[in-house]
Simulated assay, not measured.
Amino acid sequence: MSSSLQEANPNILMQTLPKPMRWALLFILVFAMLTAVSLIGGGFKTATQEHANQLFDFASNPFLGLIIGMVATALIQSSSTVSSVIVAMVAGGLPIEIAIPMMMGANIGTSITNTIVSLGHIGNKEEFQRAFNAATIHDFFNIFAVLIFLPLEMTFGMLESLSAMLVAIFSTGATAGVDGFNPIKAVTGPIIGLITYVTTQLPTIYDGIARILIGLALIVLSITWMGKIMKSLMVGRAREILQNSLGRGAVSGITSGTFVTVLVQSSSTTTSLMVPLVGNGIVTARAIYPFTLGANIGTCITALIAALSITGPNAGLALQIAFVHFCYNVLAVLVIYGLAFIREWPPNLSYQLSLKVAEQKAYGLAYIVGVFFVVPLAAVIFLA
């Protein structure tokens, strides 16, 4: 257990700050994230001059959209950041048909973090096999989800239709963000207005690019530090929930994984908490499988919060892509875990892979580089 506690320890700086100060800083960071989303959306719209469709013609192939989301998340190691940026880009004019595969790709890309964490056990063959098994369950689940739902989306537009229905239900009020009073806009408006006033001194396209860059910097910093603060405040509670949920059935595991991820604002953190527990033989990879699925659902909260900051004519589309993320992850759990003949595929495949990687450790590095970078980039070259 001691090594798992070490893996979960947050930044030392966070531990030294008094708890009230950490909560205050957390609220400031949430404000910064909401401001960043609005800046990116407005900047994207200004820079593209309402021609986002033409700008993203190269990604009209859904497989390219999938790869863009996957590689971006693997590089940043935060699906929360990428999904929030996608929400902002939709608000700025990115077609939702392109954004949906990007969201799916972000789910695969975020799996890289816990796979890298498993390399911490590489010195012990048995520990490494168990840890790599636990880490790659998430990978295989997300890959199967894409294999099932991307063709369905391309053929029937299922997620687009379902999310549009949810927007129609929930947009009867401030979430519409067009005619009614939007409290988030009221709070973030002054700072956005100040930044916009400064950037509008630049030529139009540079004005938009400047706002996008400022927004990207803000969103990466805010979500990164939100994760550190939430871990320092909640990781003990999160670990307790994890331990109490193990062995209590699938519903308990999925619910707990969702709740813990909402608490720590990072599915990567949630899944990475479990890898050392399995590596050290405290629990089995099979036992943490439902908890991993809950982490996929819990991470959707960031995109939903980001969507609430959007105002204007594309506010409904921004909320829609956030609902796409939520519907996709919930349906993936219902289908893959709900159907008995598919349920065991992710843990069985990850177990077989872990046995080979434990024997030839170089396969582990080859797997990470190949799955998350080489294959996607080769596909981009082939499809472009």
Score class of each variant (00 low, 15 high):
N348F: 13
F291S: 04
M158G: 02
I67D: 01
S78G: 06
L277Y: 01
N329V: 02
E359H: 09
G227Y: 04
R130Q: 10
I229M: 09
N329A: 02
M1P: 02
G41N: 05
A378V: 14
I143Q: 01
R211K: 15
V85L: 07
A36F: 08
G180F: 10
L331W: 06
A340T: 14
L353W: 04
T269C: 13
L202R: 05
K185I: 11
N244F: 06
K19A: 12
V324A: 03
F44M: 14
I301N: 11
A106K: 01
I76V: 15
N142W: 12
G123P: 05
A59N: 00
A366S: 13
S245T: 03
I108V: 15
F372S: 09
K231Q: 14
M89R: 01
W225D: 08
A303G: 14
K185P: 04
V374I: 15
M102E: 09
L233Q: 00
L383G: 02
M154N: 07
V371M: 15
G312S: 10
A217F: 14
P190K: 09
T175E: 07
S354H: 00
G92M: 09
G253R: 06
L162V: 15
A217W: 11
G109A: 11
I214V: 15
S3K: 12
P290A: 08
A362D: 10
N142D: 12
I192F: 10
P276I: 08
L242T: 12
F326D: 03
T200I: 09
P62C: 09
I28S: 14
A379E: 03
M154D: 05
I191T: 12
S83W: 02
H325G: 07
L166C: 08
V278A: 10
L39D: 00
S267M: 12
I98R: 11
G236Q: 06
T35C: 02
T73K: 11
I368V: 15
R248A: 01
L64T: 02
A135Q: 00
S118E: 01
E126A: 11
V357K: 01
A217K: 07
G65V: 05
E160V: 07
A164P: 05
N182P: 09
G69L: 04
T299M: 06
N280Y: 11
A59V: 03
H51M: 14
P183K: 04
I40D: 08
S171W: 03
S350L: 00
A32N: 07
G41R: 04
S83P: 04
A303Y: 10
M21N: 01
I96C: 04
Q352I: 13
L34I: 07
F341K: 07
G123R: 10
E97W: 05
L216W: 01
I301R: 13
I321Q: 06
V146P: 03
Q320P: 09
L242W: 06
P190F: 14
T113P: 07
V275W: 06
V198G: 01
V235T: 04
P290Y: 01
